[in-house]
């Protein structure tokens, strides 16, 4: 194991905290109604993104899924232009035309997509280009464990393996796909599946940024060598806001009276309907869903939070962490103030 330098740990902390703090601001904007549509956050997966991006060099490409904010921020995309994009502003990163699920940055070779599994083929194409151009660059694909049952992602694993392409596949595993427990709809073991394609694969605790960093440190030489090979990492994580802001399963826990009330009436009626399946089966189907709602609550806990985790394990860096926090908050606060002022000014014109 490579010994991690203090500097690296502090950099990881700063990357994670920057993304976290920005997404907190995003949460406020969404709650105030300034951001439309869905908003998927990367809160809880910062350690995975930071641990991977720490090893990237200029010219490496990243293909993300619908949780694109952390990789874009950590790769150095201007925060103001990101915030403006989330608000749909013409001065946003994508002129307000893309929105958070469709962010693109040509200069940094960053893409995102709201189509589940599409980061697989996307990264394969970037990797093909680096090989074609004979550079040392690699491509990273970020996706959730739910995407591992999407055909195009599985096809991409085979393509990367058979063409010997430098793709780093990063599976962010929270065992949820919207309201589905992924293990309940997945056959076999994911790592075995990936190894079946001839790809080296390993698991890592995705809430531990140092563990992720170490895992990628081992993978990188295989990816950057003259005859590269793809590599796969399955990293566990928890999304504190559930699937997206306003997650209906979490709403049950936050305001149970309001949310459960609307559901239970029709539900009881259905269970008791005089025609249908066998009553015991109906009851067990419903209790399974209720158990699912109960399980969703675990996401609200911060016990696996990657930032807190680093703070807890690296107590000797307490003061430096505090300084970083202050610096980051000051920077992002001033950006968000500027952005909000601009938007308000324009609205009053």
């Amino acid at each position: 194991m490579t010994l991690m330098r203090e500097k690296t740990i502090l950099e990881l902390y700063e990357a994670m905290y920057t993304s976290r703090y920005l997404e907190k601001i995003v949460t406020q904007l969404w709650e105030k109604g300034n951001i439309y549509g869905e908003m998927h956050l990367g809160i809880g997966e910062e350690a995975i993104i930071a641990g991977v991006l720490s090893h990237l060099i200029p010219g490496d490409a990243i293909s993300t899924d619908h949780r694109s904010t952390p990789p874009f921020v950590m790769r150095g995309v201007d925060i103001e232009s990101l915030l403006l994009e989330f608000l749909g502003h013409p001065k946003g990163l994508c002129s307000g035309l893309g929105g958070h699920m469709h962010l693109f940055c040509k200069e940094l070779l960053l893409t995102s997509s709201g189509i589940v599994g599409s980061s697989g083929p996307s990264a394969v194409g970037f990797a093909l280009a680096t090989k074609y151009q004979k550079t040392k660059n690699i491509a990273v694909a970020f996706f959730g464990e739910g995407s591992m049952n999407q055909g195009m992602l599985l096809e991409s694993l085979n393509l990367a393996s058979s063409l010997n392409l430098p793709v780093l596949f990063i599976c962010k595993d929270n065992n949820w796909a919207i309201t589905t427990r992924s293990n309940e709809v997945t056959g076999g073991v994911l790592l075995d599946r990936v190894r079946g394609f001839g790809i080296e694969a390993r698991e890592v605790d995705g809430s531990d940024c140092m563990a992720v960093w170490q895992a990628v440190e081992t993978a990188i030489p295989r990816l950057r060598k003259r005859n590269p090979a793809p590599y796969f990492i399955q990293a566990s994580c928890t999304h504190n806001e559930g699937h997206f802001l306003g997650d209906p399963l979490l709403r049950f826990h936050r305001s149970p009276k309001k949310e459960l009330g609307a559901v239970t009436g029709p539900l009881t009626k259905s269970v008791l309907h005089y025609k249908g399946g066998r009553l015991d089966k109906r009851i067990s189907s419903v209790s399974n869903v209720l158990a699912l709602i109960a399980k969703a609550r675990a996401q609200l806990s911060f016990s696996n939070d990657p930032i807190r985790r680093l703070e807890k394990t690296q107590t000797h860096l307490k003061d430096q962490f505090a300084q970083i926090k202050l610096k980051v908050e000051k920077k992002i606060n001033s950006i968000s103030e500027r952005v909000l002022n601009l938007v308000q000014e324009e609205a009053s014109l």
Binding site: T180, R282, V289
Partner: peptide
């Protein structure tokens, strides 16, 4: 996908 929650009333009546 997610029909156990999206169609919970149908699930309740007709089973999985």
């Amino acid at each position: 996908e997610d029909v156990h929650t999206l169609r919970i009333n149908l699930l309740a009546q007709f089973g999985k």
